[in-house]
Design a binder for these strands. Structure first.
Lengths: 209, 209, 209, 209
DNA sequence: TATGAATGAGAGTTCATTCAT
DNA sequence: GATGAATGAACTCTCATTCAT
């Protein structure tokens, strides 16, 4: 049953996954084609059989990882009944190292690599913009949903809030990522929720604090 | 006298400045020793006469740039009469591209490079922690100063607020840096001030909004 | 019946034609198996199914192209009534770029590739010798025919003259091929005829000059 | 005494000589940078320290070899008293393999490589044109000199004759180079002289034939 | 017959680093 | 201090060739 196509698709994806893992472990600058090939158990030549150049592969691997993350995230959101639940989960997923089973911490390393590369590589810059817009949209969607359900008050433009909350999470995540002794994941979670509640305008149950 | 030492110090610093400029322009990954040498008008060999290795030089160049920035910043702070003035200036200096004469936008590129590198290079990680602590301290100092002068109300731990405000600025700066069409420098300035006022607890003059 | 064989023969020849065309366009050094495969619309693997190696294919392609040229040439000769007509036509066909419909210029590129390769590849050297002898023979045949018809006077050995006239044409063709501004195809045609007339010993009508 | 410059110049030239020798032996297509490096007893990296790319080096090596040949040739010409002596020597030097001590045969291999490459490489094409013009000029100079001394009769344009005689020598040389059994160096020498005498219009002493 | 995934042997090129001068 | 020739290790990428299907 379409095993040829399946096989090729698998190989393609297999390489992307391997690349994402290698970038996560060694960093973009230290990632060699042969590292990725080793990870897949194939020859370096094969990597360039599937991807036209190392640069293209790296960019695709970074966006692939982001896509994977986003898919998982979206699926979870759809299962949530309330906007508050969605928001809590979004924050939970955003805190580096909070949920070990999700290896959150590692993905942040990829996002930072995307930023650096996007500064100079137009191809990456373009991709990053798409990914970023999608992410801001997700936050805005939660806010709009909460307003429909009456959980959140009407207020500022949801898109604007999406950007602000997203940026705050970025900034805090960097602190956790770099400085985990000073700023623990749990603290980031609490602070993120406080900032969100104040920006969106809902009451935070005191027990949380 | 001391001309020998002076000269050596100058060469040392000259190389660091050149390195910082090259990293800013081309990115860490694309910076070659020969680029730095060209910038100084010397031979590549000489660069390694002053710095034991490329890696060491790059780390020193990044911290050097941060030091330079911090020195300029501190000098400015000392001249300010009120905490509010200090805070306004701190934000102004933190917004990428707001003040052309300071070329702020370019320095942010360096900070992100520091983050990426700190993720995997212990030497850089250690340096980064020092720089970051110093920066958070500066924000905390402004808050403490404002409380002494009565401009700001008593409230949460100043260090904690320093971290939160610093992180927010980081997150917003990335947005500006990457997405300047969506999120303008001026908007970042306004949002930063709002977040700071809410976190510190002072009133923002309505004219500002 | 025989369709299998026919088909195989066609495929074989199709590849040789494609190879000759690719070599003509890109040069021997820049000819890849995949270029030839693309030209045929088949996979590179198939090329090596029909030809045991790239080297073998290239040599066969070059001799194939020469054979094709020779066949066309022989057929024309047979239709000519006089030796002089034959000689005129031979020269016409030998001048690079004189007859656009024959794309003569391109074939010369192949002959030069044959020379270079023959210098070091014994297989090619052997093939080239056969092709060259055949060509010199053709010129000698014209001379002998002209002597039979009384158009040309008796004189030196026809084989010897074939070699001399052939060499002259080669040398002039290179000049035209490389230097067409200095030495035009028409001039080569005139010079070739003059040299031939003097070597063979027939009168050239003054109108020609 | 300028040993630095001397040394560098030597290295430069040493590489060019090595390259020319390797191309002569293995052919342009089979010449690797590492072959040239081995020939010089240095590392392959050094070759690219002196020449910006392999392609540039090869082109420079081919023109260098031609320059060397031309210099030797010019020096000889200047020593000759009569045009006839000059012409005899020119032909002698042009026959592949006639004078073993000059390794003439090998140089022809280079000239053919130049032709092939010039067909597709504009850089080589340009260089080749210069070399070729210089060579045709040399023949024309001999003719003009012979007319001044009265050895040769007035007649056609000397430049034109230079081209024709040059082309004839090219064509004959290819025959000798490829086919030395059929067409010996001595025969080429005789034929070349005959053609020249007829084109220029001087009497050939019967003893020569 | 035909494909195309896969390999592996290089090739050119880059670049940090060394070292004699 | 300063140069720049020289090295050598790596890396990306190419391509003929093989082989299972």
């Amino acid at each position: 049953m379409a095993s040829k196509t399946r096989q090729q698709k698998d190989r393609h994806q297999e390489i992307l996954e391997a690349a994402a893992r290698v970038i996560t472990e060694r960093g973009l600058a230290e990632t060699r084609i042969s590292d990725i090939a080793d990870r897949c158990g194939v020859s370096p030549g094969l990597i360039l059989y599937y991807f036209e150049s190392k640069d293209r592969l790296l960019v695709e691997a970074l966006t692939f990882a982001n896509d994977q993350f986003y898919l998982r995230f979206s699926r979870e959101m759809r299962r949530m009944k309330t906007a508050r639940e969605q928001l809590d989960r979004l924050i939970e997923l955003s805190v580096p190292g909070l949920l070990p089973e999700y290896e959150r911490l590692d993905e942040w390393a990829l996002w930072i690599e995307i930023w650096v590369r996007a500064l100079r590589d137009p191809m990456m810059a373009k991709e990053r913009e798409v990914l970023d817009r999608r992410w801001r949209q997700s936050i805005a969607d939660i806010i709009r949903f909460g307003r429909e359900t009456g959980e959140f008050p009407a207020g500022w433009d949801a898109e604007e809030l999406g950007l602000q909350i997203g940026a705050t999470i970025d900034g805090l995540a960097i602190q956790v990522l770099m400085n985990d002794t000073v700023f623990s994941p749990t603290r980031m979670q609490r602070v993120s929720l406080e900032v969100a509640s104040r920006l969106i305008g809902f009451e935070l149950e005191p027990a949380e604090a």
